[in-house]
């Protein structure tokens, strides 16, 4: 648990960050809260000759809430939980954040780190897909935007280039009922199965639904078909089972200490049923 040697950079602005990234390419990595990166370095599974700390970079710490919500990359999960405007506008953010790790980790863990690292166990990527968020990436050629639903390629592999920094996430103020349901072995654990659900209700029927799953594939899984299975229904048992079946068609869990594949598929179904029921009850 002793990392290899590395250079520590602490630029004051994004130009400084990009300069180090350009100079060192994939020998450099930015660090936000460090909860994914530092363990990897201590296990010597990640060899990072140049570590760029984003703490002093201005403009990455804000949360703005309106019809559109933007959250800076350095906003911590603790900030999300404490921000009343955000909790009111997008309560699923608070519900999900409260299920991430423990308070000590949440004081350090950031939105940017959580979504950018590409760890399939992280909760924010699935949540961002459920909310159809857009990520802003800044690189040597300027800014570009990528949909969360297009960002994840494989475990720890994303659309982000080595010389880019993810600076903020943005999504429209979510509508309707919500639920973030997560089964885990203990506080601090990644999900055995987790589901993010937003449902818009129109009268007695579901107008639209958005469903994403966490830690059940090597990327988060946005299940368009599962959401579609609920749309236009009264979210009765038949509709829920159709949504669950659609979701099961999209996930591809692997066996680990949380259990064999069969169990994970079972848990995913149970968790999604519960998430849909809770979101529908709030819609």
């Amino acid at each position: 648990m002793i990392p290899g040697a590395f250079e520590y950079h602490r630029p004051k602005d994004m130009e400084g960050v990009l300069a180090v990234l350009q100079e060192h390419g994939d020998d450099a990595r930015v660090i936000a809260g460090g909860h994914s990166l530092i363990p990897m370095m201590k296990l010597r599974m990640a060899d990072i000759p140049h570590l760029i700390d984003l703490q002093d970079v201005q403009g990455l710490n804000s949360i703005t809430v309106g019809d559109t919500i933007t959250i800076g990359a350095m906003v911590t999960q603790h900030h999300i939980i404490e921000n009343h405007a955000l909790a009111s506008a997008a309560p699923i953010m608070r519900e999900a954040s409260l299920q991430i790790a423990d308070p000590q980790v949440r004081y350090m863990g950031t939105v940017g780190g959580n979504v950018a690292n590409g760890d399939p166990g992280n909760d924010m990527p699935g949540l961002m897909q459920c909310l159809d968020a857009t990520f802003t990436l800044v690189g040597p050629d300027g800014e570009r935007e990528v949909a969360a639903r297009d960002f994840y390629e494989a475990a720890y592999m994303t659309d982000r280039e080595d010389e880019e920094v993810l600076t903020q996430v943005r999504f429209d103020k979510p509508q309707g009922g919500f639920a973030y349901e997560k089964q885990k072995r203990k506080i601090g654990d990644y999900a055995t199965a987790a589901a993010a659900v937003q449902i818009v209700k129109d009268g007695d029927t579901c107008a639209s639904a958005s469903i994403a799953m966490t830690n059940l594939s090597d990327t988060p899984i946005y299940s368009e078909d599962a959401g579609a299975a609920l749309a236009g229904t009264t979210v009765d048992d038949t509709a829920i089972e159709a949504a669950v079946a659609a979701m099961l068609g999209d996930i591809d869990p692997t066996e680990d200490n949380r259990g064999p594949i069969e169990f994970k598929r079972h848990a995913a179904a149970v968790i999604l049923r519960r998430a849909i029921a809770r979101a529908w009850s709030r819609a």
Binding site: G259, P260, F263, H266, A267
Partner: peptide, 15 residues
């Protein structure tokens, strides 16, 4: 743990 209890329940036909 969770999956072993699930397995027990499963083998008893409780699902």
């Amino acid at each position: 743990d969770h999956w072993r209890i699930w397995k027990t329940a499963n083998e008893l036909g409780l699902h």
